[in-house]
Nucleic acid binder design. Structure first.
Lengths: 157, 157
DNA sequence: AAATTATGTCAATATGGCTGACATAATTTA
DNA sequence: TAAATTATGTCAGCCATATTGACATAATTT
């Protein structure tokens, strides 16, 4: 007959497994794009910027900073490189001329698609392998996210 | 009637959502332990070392390096701090005296439990929210992992 | 006119990776 | 036994990404 400590041990082991799954999954998930990026002298930070600018074209620097959860000093270098490399274009805000709206150039669009391709493949495979429980996996990930980030996702249109 | 490009757009949007979920989920998932760690002058790297030493007490430095996927020079500083702070203990390998087997001290065990607590809470909540599709979520994460990492997980006893 | 806001920039610092080179002790192999 | 290999550790320097604090400019709001 299973005791309480058996159950605790089983729980701990299951949790540990999931902790590891998240670690390895995230690492492998980012590995493919990382390779493409490093060939361009870019890093994961550039990827994230491209992703969110693609996700919401015309978003302002302030919005981007809030999404990334970093300081403007951290963003500065990365954003400058992307603008200098003609991946991202800055336009004056139409209502507030202090704002800089960010848009992908054609080059930027192509790059983010290239970066997304291996990730899409991996995700599609994983969704297929989780069978019809595909929505459960998505619900699981959603529930891992705190209220602030959840709100941020929602405001991405 | 839905066209092909409708379907593509829907797919892209779903994939984008999952890419974001992974980003935010991983960030929030690591945020709680990060806070505890930084109070001790440690970082996420220390957490990973503690996790794997706990997961497989007595593992060697080489095994740990393979799991973490970093160089020994990167590990050195982190491991030294954990040993100096009496969180981890090194013992000579019983068969091969060149090896250093790694064990958690009592202090180390307490710390990893403290670090795991908020993560467990979050995971349990998320599992509950993904309903009876709990195993689907785990299968999803598993499928996100490449063969090398999968093999590594298996060899964790 | 003054205060606030959006953005940008300079400088210094920390963390956690990397490469290359070299050292030591222990084990394996020829 | 002598030589080669292996497991670990260490020195030194570099890079990417983050931080804080201070300050500048232009535009908007009060």
């Amino acid at each position: 007959m299973p005791t309480n400590s058996d159950k605790d041990a089983r729980d701990t082991s299951k949790i540990n497994t999931i902790i590891e799954l998240l670690f390895f999954a995230y690492r492998d998930f980012t590995a493919d794009p990382d390779e493409i990026l490093s060939a361009l002298g870019f890093g994961r930070a550039h990827h994230r910027v491209l992703h969110f600018v693609d996700r919401k074209q015309g978003l302002t620097v302030a919005e981007l900073l809030d999404l990334l959860g970093i300081t403007k000093q951290s963003l500065a270098r990365v954003l400058k490189q992307l603008v200098d490399g003609n991946y991202i274009e800055q336009r004056e805000g139409p209502n507030d001329r202090r704002q800089r709206e960010l848009y992908l150039t054609n080059t930027g669009s192509i790059l983010i698609e290239d970066l997304r391709r291996p990730q899409s493949r991996r995700i599609c495979e994983a969704l297929a392998n989780s069978g019809h429980g595909e929505d459960d996996a998505i619900r699981f990930l959603s529930s891992m996210i705190g209220p602030h980030a959840k709100h941020q996702i929602e405001t991405l249109e």
